[in-house]
Design a protein around this nucleic acid. Structure first.
Lengths: 143, 143
DNA sequence: CTAAACTCCGTAGTCAGGTACGGAGTCAAG
DNA sequence: CTTGACTCCGTACCTGACTACGGAGTTTAG
């Protein structure tokens, strides 16, 4: 399959036709010239489309992917590495945030399971507590 | 401060006035009756507002927070715990996804650092690779 | 040669969680 | 009693990544 219609291209890359058009509008993939109104796509466009999906899977936004697509495999290795490192840092930060949330939730659930039935729900009660949200974390001391 | 204007309320909860109004539109906090056109807010509304912000900090969406706000501290402990557990599971899943991304990125960066300068950038090259995105993970063998 | 399927392209809608705007009314200080 | 700050409310706008719609043109199978 040397040359594809847009729906063949989309199917090959496992995206929707509208998504392909959207990427064209965003300038991520080229709009090939048309003979008689219908455009035909070549293999390099499919490669580019798959690049986009894989980069998304690594957490890159379409804007960042636009930058990555502008890089040259041979002359821009340092830049590519820098972008990848930055993304890695962002992901690690996000993981840390989510781990803090998970930790707080685990504490609340555990607290709720072990507190006497006559008392108000520690989860709801803690959320309604005045100011600082960390009364459920670490110690109950003055710290 | 028994009774507050909307801006005092917003300041006390560390949110914007427009955000308070937005929560009113969403039905998360009540719109108090007005005498002469200006509304006044009591302490329980501030508690509710802080509840919302803290629940957001734990990863709950405004819709979920609406559910939580409808629960009773005494009679709905089981429901509250179930919601918290479900959120915890979602967060753990998200963490796992992000860790997979981070792992892949770390591999790519390391690969890029150690590959000979004459070769194309392994990061860009891997992204452009046909089909499966996992050629950068685990081993380089036939698997 | 026709009918179905596909393509093109611009525009608009979706989700979440706000943020901004504008005009009219209200309140407090001087 | 005016000035300036604040409030009310509806509506529109924002980000990011799509997704849908509609009408006109094109291609293909029978």
């Amino acid at each position: 399959m040397q040359s594809m219609t847009i729906s063949q291209l989309a199917r090959a890359a496992e995206v929707g036709v509208e998504t392909v058009r959207y990427y064209q509008r965003r300038g991520l993939i080229a709009v090939p010239p048309t003979r008689s109104g219908i455009r035909r796509y070549e293999a390099p466009t499919l490669v580019r489309l798959r690049f986009i999906r894989r980069a998304q899977g690594l957490g890159f936004s379409l804007e960042e992917i636009g930058d990555l697509l502008g890089l040259d495999e041979h002359t821009d290795r340092v830049a590519a590495r820098a972008i990848a490192r930055e993304k890695l840092t962002q992901i690690e930060e996000r993981i840390a945030q989510l781990q803090a949330m998970a930790h707080a939730l685990r504490d609340l659930v555990a607290c709720c399971e072990h507190s006497p039935a006559a008392q108000p729900c520690p989860i709801l009660h803690t959320l309604a507590q005045p100011t600082r949200a960390d009364s459920y974390s670490k110690s109950t001391g003055a710290g």
